[in-house]
Structures are given as structure tokens and as C-alpha cells.
């Protein structure tokens, strides 16, 4: 009886471990898929043009990033001070800005490759996928993706490039502007950047 119980416990533990391993894999898969799509867009960047890159990357970013959570963290306590309409407007504008930033910065291909390095679990149940971008004739750039499980899906909530956290950087900027100049100024500044990205 004792032996039977021990076997059952072992089976359960194995089950938990394998389920956990699947989750870790799926977090990595989300990053892998996003990076593959990004490289693909870069390879066809010139033919696609800004509008084409934006269109292709909109789905890629939406399916891999939790943009709503990101912008909530970015504005911090200021979020509760916004009306529902303002919150929705901020989510929409920020989403456009995120995609347009990718579409502008990843516009052509010179042999770059993303390489997976390792993955680790955070204390709060998140996963960090460590990767780097190899650039011919240049020093590689480290990209660490922090993911959270939202429902049954893993979603990127932060990207740390060579030690610089995108979330922390935006958080300082956005809260500063919100407190100092207000919501409309923040939206105007983001829209101005989106507009510039589409023209450059």
C-alpha cells in the first residue's frame, strides 16, 4: 500500500513537472515565433514598405505581447486617475506606437540572427527567455524577454536590451509626462512619434 502510494505521488510529481515544462516551452515558443516573424519582416522589409511591415507586425506583436498589461505597468498609479475612455485611448495609441516602433527599426536585413541562450523562472511565476541578436561585424545585442502567463497563454511584458529595461524606461518617461503635462500631452507626443516613424 505504501509502495502504491509512493508510486502515485511520483506519477503526480512527474505529471506536474511535465506540465510545467510544457509551460516553459510555450513561453520560449512565443519568443521564438515572434523573433522568427521579426526576421521574416526584416528580410522582406524593403518590398513591404512601412505600411506592409506595420500590417505584418501588428498581429505578431499582438499575439506575443500583453500590451494592455504593459501600458498599465508603464503608467503605474496614474492609470486609476484616467477615465475608461482615456484608458482605452491610451491602450490603442500605445499599441500603435509599439508596432510602429518595430516597423521602423527593423526595416531591412543584413544577416542578423536571434539565438536562444537560456530560460529561467522568476520568483513570481514568470519566465525570462535570454537571447541575443547576432549582427555581422558588430557586437551582439542581448535581448531578455520577461513573460507572464495570462490565461493559458504566455505573453511578453518586458524586454531588456543589453541590461536596459524597456518597461522601466517607458515608465519613467510616461509617468513624468502625465504628472507634468497631462494625458492629452502624452497622447499628442506618442502620436507625433508614430507619425514620424511612418515618414522616416
Amino acid at each position: 500500500m505504501v509502495l502504491k502510494n509512493m508510486i502515485m505521488v511520483l506519477v503526480l510529481l512527474l505529471g506536474i513537472n511535465s506540465a510545467h515544462a510544457e509551460n516553459i516551452n510555450s513561453a520560449r515558443q512565443v519568443v521564438d515565433k515572434f523573433q522568427t516573424e521579426l526576421i521574416d519582416v526584416m528580410k522582406n522589409g524593403k518590398q513591404l514598405g512601412y505600411a506592409g511591415r506595420y500590417e505584418k507586425l501588428f498581429n505578431a506583436v499582438s499575439n506575443s505581447h500583453d500590451l494592455t498589461k504593459i501600458i498599465r505597468i508603464v503608467v503605474g498609479k496614474e492609470w486609476e486617475k484616467l477615465s475608461e475612455t482615456q484608458q482605452q485611448k491610451l491602450i490603442d495609441t500605445f499599441s500603435k506606437f509599439s508596432v510602429s516602433s518595430y516597423a521602423h527599426n527593423f526595416k531591412d536585413y543584413d544577416g542578423e540572427t536571434f539565438v536562444f541562450d537560456s530560460e529561467e523562472e522568476t520568483t513570481r511565476g514568470g519566465v525570462v527567455i535570454h537571447t541575443h541578436l547576432n549582427i555581422p561585424d558588430e557586437k551582439a545585442v542581448k535581448f531578455d524577454y520577461m513573460l507572464k502567463e495570462i490565461g493559458n497563454n504566455w505573453r511578453i511584458i518586458n524586454i531588456i536590451a543589453n541590461g536596459v529595461s524597456d518597461l522601466a524606461l517607458k515608465r519613467s518617461e510616461y509617468t513624468n509626462i502625465l504628472q507634468r503635462e497631462g494625458f492629452d500631452a502624452l497622447i499628442a507626443k506618442i502620436n507625433e512619434k508614430i507619425d514620424n516613424y511612418s515618414k522616416l
Binding site: D137, K139, A161
Partner: peptide
């Protein structure tokens, strides 16, 4: 080298560092 320089620089600056 020249071909990729400006684009590569832009991507590298994604590291903000």
C-alpha cells in the same frame, strides 16, 4: 561593412546603452 552600418547602428541603439 558600409552597407549595413546605419541600419545596424539603429538596431544596436535598441539597447539604449
Amino acid at each position: 561593412m558600409k552597407r549595413s552600418r546605419s541600419n545596424v547602428r539603429t538596431k544596436q541603439t535598441l539597447s539604449y546603452m
